[in-house]
Computed example of a mutant assay.
Amino acid sequence: MIIWRGWGILVVLIAGLFAVPSGLTAESFLGPELAPLGVALGLAAAGIAVFFVGQRLNAPRPGFHPGTGQPVMYRNAHTLFFVPMQFWGFILLGVSVLVGVMTLIGA
């Protein structure tokens, strides 16, 4: 089961949109044994994209409290598995390094 809040599900979608095509491209050029290198590159690109999208979506916005009229900062909470979206960029980068190293060791 996937648990998300707000637009946190975009982490999964962005990772899939980057990793799958790059993995298929690497498979057609490098062969099936090195296809995970393409997936690793796609995950690295997805990590960068997720970081910037998460920074943009989770940025605090100034506003006013409707009852009192006092200024407040509204904070967004776009998370996946209770982890803020921008931090998933670092997680995806770590996974891409792990996949790349394991592919090169196994190859």
Rank of each mutant, 00 (worst) to 15 (best):
M1K: 03
I2E: 04
I2D: 01
I3T: 07
I3N: 02
R5P: 09
R5N: 15
W7G: 04
W7N: 14
L10N: 10
L17Q: 14
L17A: 15
F18G: 05
A19W: 00
V20E: 13
V20P: 04
V20I: 15
V20H: 06
S22V: 02
L24I: 14
L24R: 13
L24A: 13
T25D: 03
A26I: 01
S28T: 14
F29T: 10
F29L: 15
L30C: 06
G31K: 11
G31I: 05
P32F: 00
P32K: 15
E33W: 07
L34R: 14
L34P: 02
L34Y: 15
A35E: 11
P36V: 05
L37K: 00
G38Q: 05
V39R: 04
V39N: 03
A40L: 07
L41T: 13
G42V: 00
L43V: 11
A44F: 13
A44S: 13
A44M: 13
A45S: 13
I48T: 15
A49C: 14
F51E: 14
F52C: 07
F52G: 10
G54Y: 04
G54T: 01
R56D: 04
R56S: 13
L57W: 03
L57V: 01
P60S: 08
P60N: 07
R61C: 01
P62E: 13
P66K: 05
G69D: 12
P71E: 01
V72K: 07
M73A: 13
M73H: 08
R75N: 10
A77C: 01
A77F: 01
H78N: 15
T79A: 02
L80Y: 06
L80S: 06
L80T: 09
F81R: 06
F82Y: 09
F82V: 15
V83C: 06
P84V: 04
F87E: 02
F87H: 07
F90R: 04
G94A: 14
G94D: 04
V95W: 06
S96N: 08
S96L: 02
S96R: 07
V97N: 12
L98Y: 10
L98V: 10
L98H: 06
V99I: 15
V99D: 03
G100C: 10
M102C: 03
M102R: 11
M102P: 02
T103E: 12
T103R: 10
L104Q: 07
I105P: 00
G106V: 11
